[in-house]
Simulated scan of single mutants.
Amino acid sequence: MSDVHTPEQRSRNMAAVRGRDTKPELELRRALHGLGFRYRLNVRTLPGTPDLVLPARNALLFVHGCFWHGHDCPLFVLPRARRDFWLDKIGRNQLRDRQHHDRLHDAGWRIGTVWECAMRGRSSPGVTATAATVERFLRSADCREMYFRDNGAHAGAGHPLSLAERFGSAQVSGSDEGNLDRGAV
């Protein structure tokens, strides 16, 4: 299937995709602020530039879009056009995410990843419920890593399946499958 847009139109569309201040991120920030949390935004000195950093709680949050980070949920649909390009692109995003998480863990940070599907979609618990679950994570000192998705929160190994596993690709170039997949939730 060929693209319905010209390369110039497609380039403009892709350039308009926001990397910060996305709707799910703004909704979560508003809810957490209402619960009394104060945070720093997009701290560039930390690996992966976390969306919210709560230094007093030694915690940080990433708000991931399900498409761009290859989440195994109904919101992720691999495009039919340029399939190899998208497998490679999203596979590299997943690998980079895992590397950033590893470096942040080594530095002693507690990491929460809030997936877009936790706040939108048919099976979503919604912003309020997700914020309440994130609040429990932030207030607990013993939880090291938490993933918030459409069917609730899960501790530990919550990175999505690698694209190679999900779509049967022999190789997602630029990725190291051993580091790409830490288990599915």
Rank of each mutant, 00 (worst) to 15 (best):
R20A: 02
D21R: 02
E25K: 04
H33W: 07
G36V: 12
R38I: 13
L41Q: 10
L41E: 10
N42S: 01
V43L: 00
R44N: 00
R44W: 00
L46W: 00
P47F: 00
V53Q: 00
P55Y: 11
P55Q: 14
N58F: 09
L60I: 05
L60G: 10
V63E: 07
F67Q: 14
H69T: 06
H71P: 07
C73K: 12
L78P: 03
A81M: 03
A81S: 13
R82A: 06
R83G: 13
D84I: 10
F85A: 10
F85M: 06
F85V: 15
D88M: 02
K89T: 05
K89F: 06
G91K: 01
G91L: 01
N93M: 08
Q94S: 05
L95M: 07
L95W: 02
R96Q: 12
D97V: 12
R98A: 02
H105D: 14
A107V: 01
G108R: 02
W109K: 04
R110T: 04
G112N: 13
T113S: 10
A118G: 07
R120I: 05
R122L: 05
S123Y: 08
S123D: 15
T130I: 03
T130P: 00
A132L: 01
T133A: 09
V134R: 08
V134K: 06
V134C: 08
R139L: 15
C143T: 14
C143M: 15
E145A: 15
E145K: 02
R149F: 14
R149N: 14
N151C: 08
A153M: 11
H154A: 07
A155F: 06
